[in-house]
Design a protein around this nucleic acid. Structure first.
Length: 197
DNA sequence: GAGAAGATCTCCT
DNA sequence: GGAGATCTTCTCA
Protein backbone atom coordinates (compact mmCIF):
# COMPACT_ATOMS: atom_id res chain seq x y z
CA UNK A 1 0.00 0.00 0.00
CA UNK A 2 2.82 2.39 0.90
CA UNK A 3 4.49 1.78 -2.43
CA UNK A 4 1.59 3.65 -4.05
CA UNK A 5 2.37 6.96 -2.36
CA UNK A 6 2.69 8.81 0.93
CA UNK A 7 -0.19 8.69 3.37
CA UNK A 8 -1.92 12.03 3.97
CA UNK A 9 -1.23 13.44 7.43
CA UNK A 10 -3.58 14.66 10.14
CA UNK A 11 -2.51 18.22 9.28
CA UNK A 12 -3.77 17.79 5.73
CA UNK A 13 -7.30 17.23 7.06
CA UNK A 14 -7.14 19.80 9.88
CA UNK A 15 -7.93 22.69 7.53
CA UNK A 16 -10.91 24.41 6.01
CA UNK A 17 -13.27 21.71 4.69
CA UNK A 18 -13.68 23.29 1.27
CA UNK A 19 -9.90 23.50 0.85
CA UNK A 20 -9.48 19.87 1.91
CA UNK A 21 -12.23 18.79 -0.50
CA UNK A 22 -10.52 20.47 -3.47
CA UNK A 23 -7.17 19.01 -2.49
CA UNK A 24 -8.51 15.48 -2.18
CA UNK A 25 -9.15 15.31 -5.92
CA UNK A 26 -6.50 13.15 -7.58
CA UNK A 27 -5.56 11.43 -4.31
CA UNK A 28 -5.72 7.67 -3.89
CA UNK A 29 -8.19 5.92 -1.60
CA UNK A 30 -6.62 2.58 -0.65
CA UNK A 31 -8.21 -0.27 1.26
CA UNK A 32 -7.02 -3.65 2.43
CA UNK A 33 -10.06 -4.24 4.58
CA UNK A 34 -10.82 -7.59 3.00
CA UNK A 35 -7.28 -8.82 2.48
CA UNK A 36 -7.19 -7.82 -1.17
CA UNK A 37 -5.70 -4.44 -2.00
CA UNK A 38 -8.22 -2.14 -3.62
CA UNK A 39 -7.55 1.43 -4.67
CA UNK A 40 -9.13 4.22 -6.64
CA UNK A 41 -8.31 7.78 -7.60
CA UNK A 42 -10.68 10.32 -6.05
CA UNK A 43 -12.44 12.15 -8.89
CA UNK A 44 -15.48 13.71 -7.15
CA UNK A 45 -16.11 15.08 -3.63
CA UNK A 46 -18.46 17.35 -1.69
CA UNK A 47 -17.70 19.55 1.34
CA UNK A 48 -20.02 19.66 4.35
CA UNK A 49 -19.40 22.11 7.17
CA UNK A 50 -21.34 23.02 10.33
CA UNK A 51 -23.23 26.09 11.53
CA UNK A 52 -22.89 27.84 8.15
CA UNK A 53 -24.17 24.83 6.19
CA UNK A 54 -27.83 23.76 6.58
CA UNK A 55 -27.25 20.70 4.41
CA UNK A 56 -24.71 19.28 6.86
CA UNK A 57 -25.40 16.66 9.51
CA UNK A 58 -23.49 18.94 11.88
CA UNK A 59 -25.67 21.99 11.22
CA UNK A 60 -27.61 21.78 14.51
CA UNK A 61 -24.63 20.82 16.61
CA UNK A 62 -23.37 17.39 17.61
CA UNK A 63 -25.78 14.43 17.72
CA UNK A 64 -24.92 10.76 18.37
CA UNK A 65 -24.35 10.33 14.66
CA UNK A 66 -22.66 13.62 13.77
CA UNK A 67 -20.41 14.03 16.81
CA UNK A 68 -17.60 12.35 14.89
CA UNK A 69 -17.55 15.38 12.59
CA UNK A 70 -16.56 17.52 15.58
CA UNK A 71 -13.79 15.17 16.70
CA UNK A 72 -10.33 14.68 15.23
CA UNK A 73 -9.70 15.17 11.50
CA UNK A 74 -8.68 12.40 9.11
CA UNK A 75 -11.22 9.89 10.44
CA UNK A 76 -13.75 7.92 8.36
CA UNK A 77 -17.38 8.95 8.87
CA UNK A 78 -19.65 6.29 7.38
CA UNK A 79 -23.43 6.51 7.60
CA UNK A 80 -26.35 4.53 6.26
CA UNK A 81 -28.99 6.23 4.14
CA UNK A 82 -32.13 5.56 2.10
CA UNK A 83 -32.40 2.10 3.62
CA UNK A 84 -29.84 0.81 1.14
CA UNK A 85 -26.59 2.68 0.99
CA UNK A 86 -23.52 3.65 2.95
CA UNK A 87 -21.76 6.96 2.32
CA UNK A 88 -18.07 7.49 3.04
CA UNK A 89 -16.76 10.80 4.38
CA UNK A 90 -13.47 11.95 5.87
CA UNK A 91 -13.58 14.35 8.81
CA UNK A 92 -11.89 17.73 8.52
CA UNK A 93 -11.13 20.94 10.48
CA UNK A 94 -9.25 21.08 13.81
CA UNK A 95 -10.74 19.29 16.83
CA UNK A 96 -13.88 21.09 18.02
CA UNK A 97 -14.85 22.42 14.60
CA UNK A 98 -17.10 20.25 12.48
CA UNK A 99 -16.57 19.29 8.87
CA UNK A 100 -16.39 16.33 6.51
CA UNK A 101 -15.76 15.60 2.86
CA UNK A 102 -18.07 13.15 1.12
CA UNK A 103 -16.23 10.92 -1.35
CA UNK A 104 -18.66 10.74 -4.27
CA UNK A 105 -16.73 8.93 -7.01
CA UNK A 106 -13.50 7.07 -7.71
CA UNK A 107 -11.59 6.01 -10.77
CA UNK A 108 -10.97 2.30 -10.11
CA UNK A 109 -7.24 1.49 -10.11
CA UNK A 110 -6.54 -1.72 -8.19
CA UNK A 111 -8.68 -4.69 -7.21
CA UNK A 112 -11.15 -4.28 -10.07
CA UNK A 113 -12.09 -7.96 -10.01
CA UNK A 114 -13.41 -7.78 -6.49
CA UNK A 115 -15.23 -4.50 -7.20
CA UNK A 116 -16.95 -6.07 -10.20
CA UNK A 117 -18.00 -9.06 -8.15
CA UNK A 118 -19.49 -6.88 -5.39
CA UNK A 119 -21.20 -4.52 -7.81
CA UNK A 120 -22.36 -7.26 -10.18
CA UNK A 121 -21.27 -5.33 -13.24
CA UNK A 122 -18.23 -5.47 -15.51
CA UNK A 123 -18.43 -1.90 -16.76
CA UNK A 124 -15.54 0.01 -15.10
CA UNK A 125 -17.33 3.34 -15.62
CA UNK A 126 -20.19 2.09 -13.48
CA UNK A 127 -18.25 0.57 -10.57
CA UNK A 128 -17.58 3.53 -8.29
CA UNK A 129 -19.33 6.55 -9.86
CA UNK A 130 -21.53 7.41 -6.89
CA UNK A 131 -21.25 7.47 -3.09
CA UNK A 132 -23.37 4.35 -2.58
CA UNK A 133 -21.67 2.52 -5.41
CA UNK A 134 -18.12 3.03 -4.25
CA UNK A 135 -18.80 1.89 -0.70
CA UNK A 136 -20.39 -1.26 -2.08
CA UNK A 137 -17.50 -1.85 -4.48
CA UNK A 138 -14.95 -1.54 -1.67
CA UNK A 139 -17.03 -3.36 0.94
CA UNK A 140 -17.24 -0.33 3.23
CA UNK A 141 -19.93 -0.46 5.94
CA UNK A 142 -20.59 1.21 9.27
CA UNK A 143 -17.88 -1.08 10.69
CA UNK A 144 -15.42 1.37 9.19
CA UNK A 145 -17.06 4.34 10.91
CA UNK A 146 -14.46 5.96 13.16
CA UNK A 147 -11.39 4.35 11.55
CA UNK A 148 -8.42 6.67 11.54
CA UNK A 149 -7.27 7.04 7.93
CA UNK A 150 -4.02 8.68 8.99
CA UNK A 151 -2.84 5.71 11.08
CA UNK A 152 -4.64 2.59 9.85
CA UNK A 153 -2.72 0.03 7.83
CA UNK A 154 -5.88 -1.21 6.18
CA UNK A 155 -7.59 1.97 5.10
CA UNK A 156 -5.94 5.24 4.05
CA UNK A 157 -5.68 8.07 1.58
CA UNK A 158 -2.39 8.44 -0.25
CA UNK A 159 -0.68 11.17 -2.22
CA UNK A 160 0.27 9.33 -5.42
CA UNK A 161 3.90 9.46 -6.57
CA UNK A 162 2.92 10.51 -10.07
CA UNK A 163 -0.09 12.76 -10.34
CA UNK A 164 -1.37 13.93 -13.70
CA UNK A 165 -2.48 17.50 -14.29
CA UNK A 166 -6.23 18.07 -14.25
CA UNK A 167 -8.77 20.86 -14.13
CA UNK A 168 -11.17 21.16 -11.18
CA UNK A 169 -14.86 21.89 -11.76
CA UNK A 170 -16.96 23.43 -8.98
CA UNK A 171 -20.74 22.80 -8.89
CA UNK A 172 -23.66 22.76 -6.47
CA UNK A 173 -24.07 19.67 -4.32
CA UNK A 174 -26.41 16.82 -5.14
CA UNK A 175 -29.40 15.39 -3.32
CA UNK A 176 -29.84 18.16 -0.76
CA UNK A 177 -32.71 20.58 -0.16
CA UNK A 178 -30.95 23.37 1.73
CA UNK A 179 -27.60 25.00 1.22
CA UNK A 180 -28.12 24.58 -2.52
CA UNK A 181 -26.46 27.90 -3.30
CA UNK A 182 -23.04 26.67 -2.21
CA UNK A 183 -20.82 25.31 -4.97
CA UNK A 184 -19.09 22.77 -2.77
CA UNK A 185 -19.06 19.81 -5.12
CA UNK A 186 -15.76 19.40 -6.92
CA UNK A 187 -14.82 17.01 -9.66
CA UNK A 188 -12.11 16.37 -12.24
CA UNK A 189 -13.08 17.74 -15.62
CA UNK A 190 -13.49 15.15 -18.37
CA UNK A 191 -13.24 12.18 -16.03
CA UNK A 192 -15.63 9.44 -17.20
CA UNK A 193 -15.89 8.21 -13.62
CA UNK A 194 -17.80 11.10 -11.98
CA UNK A 195 -21.40 10.45 -10.85
CA UNK A 196 -22.83 13.28 -12.94
CA UNK A 197 -21.79 16.52 -14.61
C1' DG B 1 -42.97 6.81 20.83
C1' DA B 2 -44.50 8.31 16.28
C1' DG B 3 -43.70 10.44 11.95
C1' DA B 4 -41.09 12.35 8.31
C1' DA B 5 -37.08 13.03 5.57
C1' DG B 6 -33.06 11.47 3.67
C1' DA B 7 -25.42 13.63 1.12
C1' DT B 8 -28.97 6.90 -3.32
C1' DC B 9 -29.48 3.26 -6.76
C1' DT B 10 -31.92 0.30 -9.82
C1' DC B 11 -35.40 -1.05 -12.58
C1' DC B 12 -39.30 -0.01 -15.36
C1' DT B 13 -41.70 2.57 -18.92
C1' DG C 1 -37.97 10.40 -16.50
C1' DG C 2 -40.11 8.44 -12.37
C1' DA C 3 -41.13 5.60 -8.51
C1' DG C 4 -40.11 1.98 -5.17
C1' DA C 5 -37.00 -0.19 -2.01
C1' DT C 6 -35.97 -0.03 2.90
C1' DC C 7 -34.26 1.60 7.48
C1' DT C 8 -31.71 4.97 10.32
C1' DT C 9 -31.65 9.30 12.50
C1' DC C 10 -33.64 13.31 14.20
C1' DT C 11 -37.40 16.15 15.95
C1' DC C 12 -41.21 16.98 18.59
C1' DA C 13 -44.84 15.72 21.67
Amino acid sequence: MDTLGDRLSRQFFARNTVTVARNLLGKLLASRLTGTLQAGRIVEVEAYRSADDPASHAYRGPTPRSKIMFAKPGVAYVYFTYGNHYCLNVTTEPVGRAGAVLIRALEPKLGLKQMMRRRKTRNPDNLTNGPGKLTRALGITDKQNGMDLTTSNQFSILDPKRQSIFETVSRTRIGIRSGIEKKWRFYIRDSPYVSRL
